[in-house]
Amino acid sequence: MFDSPHISAAASPASPLLSVSGLTVFYGNIRALHGISFDVMESEIVALIGANGAGKSTTLRAISGLVPHKGDVVFGGRNLRRVRPENITGMGLVQAPEGRCIFHNLSVLENLKLATWQRRDNPQITRDYERVFGCFPRLAERRHQPGGTLSGGEQQMLAIGRALMSRPRMLLLDEPSMGLAPVMVTEIFRVITEIHRDGTSILLVEQNANMALRHASRALVLETGLITHRGTGAELLGNPLVREAYLGG
């Protein structure tokens, strides 16, 4: 559904879309990430799970260039070190932040419109609205309602929809299921799979490890700033250590 507009010229098919190496982040004197490395291939869902404070959100923020970091983040063959956050979005690497961060006083439509800030291809934009609304019928019903009056689940949909409006090659999702009713969680994961099927890669941070591992092609377990386990979703689901720590035994 979302055909990727950015043709990857720099990256050959075998090389990863996103490659993170030696990523280290300090908050003051506290080291939040201890030089982690991982790759995300073209059209993969990679889940990042772990306890609170393990550094999951920090990883996403560092990749989007929102916190100062050491180490290399290479996206589509280009090192992001000197790229400003707003231009990272332009390259097709888009984050939907935790806690939604939507504009409460703007309508659903205006929220989506803001994401097209850097785009000039107007006819395409109109089609993208239709796609987002196709993905989330609930948003279509409420397109003129202010973002602040949406329910939690709808706000989450809006945040993801907004991220999709900038036509990402890769989507960074920070706890999409947080604060959602079980039916909604199922719904959000259905949409995530759908987006993925259309060729967008996804890096997913989740506390709901059960759901995340079931939908991810690969997963990483982060503990106190280090990657302690990695494998396919199924492998980790079967791993007794992971089960004990993150799936509640």
Binding site: I30, A32, G55, E223, T224
Partner: peptide
């Protein structure tokens, strides 16, 4: 401060 903000 504790070495890392995590064991919480």
């Amino acid at each position: 401060a504790p070495p890392i903000a995590s064991q919480d």
